[in-house]
């Protein structure tokens, strides 16, 4: 009883973690299913059909590729624009700081349905043709804020003395940026880009409003949900999940090693083992 009380938090915590993965398990298991009817909802029979024939259903793979394309383009643009804003916010003085902060914060606090609808209202009023272009515009718009937040945190966490040391050691402003600032902020930028891609790749609501006839992977799933989602979709989702998890775990590993070295420039180093 006492043991239970002491470990209650842990037990509940682990239970919540398991709960988070239940749907993932369902998605994975059903990717090996051979559904009896058109809906892949209940287990019927083991089959590798979806895995051996990933693009076997028309539209699945093309929508998948479309989503990757949109994700890559939006991520690159948003990462560049967002990182620039982050630098400006941390390193420069300018007027209208609170308006700027508000403009960055609000997209994260606005329901997607409102963002999707308002952007569609703009495009409709401008008679702007909907398609890949409008979806990319929309994705860049909502990713920027997340990039700003991530890169800004990294920049603020950096010891300002490192850049001063570089200046002191004959590095002109350009060299300071190239050899010290940029390498130190890079992990933050990469993290922001990964987050941005994930957001873009998985976005349904905003895309759906602004896609016109374009079909992204989530839009394909949405459409298929009415008439039965092909097993291939589960297989592709499983692949995406595993790949993303591997990327993040690798990044985590690299980051941890780097962070350990970052800490020492701030923390008195005596606590470290002598070598």
């Amino acid at each position: 009883m006492r043991w239970l009380r002491r470990n209650l938090v842990g037990i509940v915590g682990i239970a919540v973690l398991v709960y988070l993965f239940v749907p993932i398990a369902v998605i994975m298991v059903l990717s090996f299913n051979k559904p009896s009817g058109k809906y892949n909802l209940t287990w019927n029979e083991f089959s590798l059909d979806a895995w051996t024939n990933l693009c076997g259903v028309p539209g699945v793979c093309s929508s998948f590729v479309t989503s990757i394309q949109i994700g890559v383009i939006s991520t690159i643009v948003a990462t560049v624009l967002g990182s620039m804003i982050a630098f400006a916010l941390v390193r420069y003085r300018f007027r209208g700081r609170s308006t700027t902060n508000l403009l960055i914060f609000l997209p994260m606090a606005t329901p997607e349905v409102v963002m999707g609808a308002s952007l569609l209202a703009l495009f409709l009023n401008l008679r702007f043709p909907l398609g890949e272009g409008t979806v990319i515009i929309a994705h860049i718009m909502f990713i920027i804020s997340f990039v700003v937040v991530t890169v800004k945190a990294r920049l603020q966490g950096m010891d300002p003395r490192l850049e001063e040391a570089a200046r002191d050691l004959y590095a002109n402003p350009r060299a300071v940026f190239r050899y010290v600032t940029f390498p130190l902020v890079l992990p933050g930028i990469v993290g922001a880009a990964l987050l941005g891609f994930a957001l873009s790749f998985d976005d349904f609501i905003i895309s759906f409003f602004n896609a016109g006839t374009l079909v992204t992977f989530p839009i394909y799933i949405w459409g298929a949900a009415q008439r039965g989602i092909p097993v291939q979709v589960n297989a592709l989702a499983t692949i995406v999940f595993v790949v993303a998890l591997l990327i993040v775990l690798t990044a985590q590993f690299v980051n941890q090693r780097r962070r350990r070295s970052l800490a020492t420039s701030v923390v008195p180093a005596d606590a470290l083992p002598r070598s």
């Binding site: 010891d159 003395r161 490192l162 040391a165 570089a166 970052l262 020492t264 420039s265």
Partner: peptide
């Protein structure tokens, strides 16, 4: 020679 050294961690 900076306080806490400011060695480049990377």
């Amino acid at each position: 020679v900076f306080q806490s050294y400011a060695l480049f961690p990377h």
